[in-house]
Nucleic acid binder design. Sequence first.
DNA 1: ACCCCATATACTCTCTGTGAGCATAAGTGC
DNA 2: GCACTTATGCTCACAGAGAGTATATGGGGT
Lengths: 312, 312
Amino acid sequence: MSEHRLVIGLNAVLAALEGPSPRVLCVERSVGWALPFGAFDPGAHRTFEIGLRQFVELQADVPLGYVEQLYTFGDMGREAPRAVMRDTEPSDRVVSVGYLGLAPECVPPAIDRAQWVDWYTYFPWEDWRDGAPSILTDDILPKLDVWADTEDRRARLRASFALEGVPWEEERVLDRYELLYEAGLVPEEARDRGETSRATDESLGRPMLSDHRRILATAIGRLRGKLRYRPILFQMMPEHFTLTDLQLAVEAILGFRLHKQNFRRSLESAGLVEKTDIVAASTGGRPAALYRASALALEKHSPGMTLPRMRQ
Amino acid sequence: MSEHRLVIGLNAVLAALEGPSPRVLCVERSVGWALPFGAFDPGAHRTFEIGLRQFVELQADVPLGYVEQLYTFGDMGREAPRAVMRDTEPSDRVVSVGYLGLAPECVPPAIDRAQWVDWYTYFPWEDWRDGAPSILTDDILPKLDVWADTEDRRARLRASFALEGVPWEEERVLDRYELLYEAGLVPEEARDRGETSRATDESLGRPMLSDHRRILATAIGRLRGKLRYRPILFQMMPEHFTLTDLQLAVEAILGFRLHKQNFRRSLESAGLVEKTDIVAASTGGRPAALYRASALALEKHSPGMTLPRMRQ
DNA sequence: ACCCCATATACTCTCTGTGAGCATAAGTGC
DNA sequence: GCACTTATGCTCACAGAGAGTATATGGGGT
């Protein structure tokens, strides 16, 4: 065993919805934007989750509801810079355990450096609700086309960015980010190579500290994928909601529009929602009935919902 | 930060098939059966996977093909006993990163303490290929029925062990093991409480060192679940195989029988297999055509196969 | 009071994938 | 040649998903 000390960094992707905007809790640090994170303390924390909840409360003071572990990142060279972690030494090796947490609303963080940020600020190419994003078609794809000069690269590009008839797979957020990283299109890549250019280039989404954008990509991909087979969405909804609210929430997370009638049918036939007597305050047209999550929808292992994509 | 030193244990569930027997690579240590594992060395290992491959080679000398991370277990009280880990001190805190690895065949391990073991040795209640296992109906369920004396416990029991009309969900291997652990039916529970009774009770499956049976349960559940949406199975098959071989392989992993015709139809319509000119040496009836995995089936993100369960 | 507009909600039609059974082909052993 | 075994092909029924059209129910303007 070498002399390098191990440090486990706990990272929380805390997600919530603000109307049609999917948000993630971010903390502004001296060196840039980051997820709430801190070192796991083996003496004080009996489990990872206990440590995580403590950090989130300390750094953002937002209640943490549903929590699930995402992945443990241990690659050298992409770990957290020590500068921002207290009580670590240059020789320490930092590995990151990423967590996904869901909250039913964006409660304003009590700490002023913490803030709810629309996650498409970090991944503008992931939002297809108004059609293919122009940053993708005009900016990213031409550059990736130049980068993909081998058959292997072309195949990966085709598969992850839905070229040549391949359908867009919304859950492959990490694949796409990693491809942009490898192609040197995101500022984190140059930074990890040791370049000190402080050009905060946000043209391809806002960069984050350390490997936090990678963790965020993992979280969004996991959340998008999980909607299909677990009723996890109701962890992000208020107690009462209209079916349109629910659809807008799903669309916000997935980044594309759904077929309204089929979405509703699948919800009701799956028994995930129950109508209440209450009727929503009108929003210009016929008032909508308010629904709530059924008992089934709140169970951990219930099936999710079908997500009928709207076609052109 | 306290004085406790952190140690990351890397654990490999290496799975392969021997005909209709799903096996996992196990190592016999002085204190019992274990998965290949060892401490991650932050000085020597650039990534977790590098460390993992090194341990597996050292302890079993079996080539490691497909590998994926499972979960990181950090709970106090269920970590690895220090006794078996070199260079650790009593105050050290050990967390386990579990990995799943797949091999196309059970190559005999070069180390004599390593061995391929049928995984139903550890989870006899998971094998429904010949109907409901008697150890479940005669032994486990009566005991669990006594244990489930609250509404909450009853609900969990119903859901994970398919009581009262709930269908058996093959991927919930961990849920079932954890329930048996909580109910005090597996020897690991008493051991973790500090009881020193060395009664190696194997009536409810063979126990393992530390939390290794939990990691194994996670791995089997992940593998079972992933079959449906990724063509991962072909990582465990030889280059050429008959469709019956393939079906037996799936049945071995899932632990239940499939509907032959529908399974074949789904395979061919999904384009996962290609017929070759070769015909298998006859096994008593009409000789079967040999197939191989298609290019599609070898891609990482291709869809999996439908698993049409055989009904009575 | 009436009409127009916007949104919510209901109904229908079609197509495909899946569950299930039956029929036929091609070997082996006696 | 016959019985048996395993492989392979075909068909029917049905449920669910995709997609479009029609009807209810509110608000606001004239």
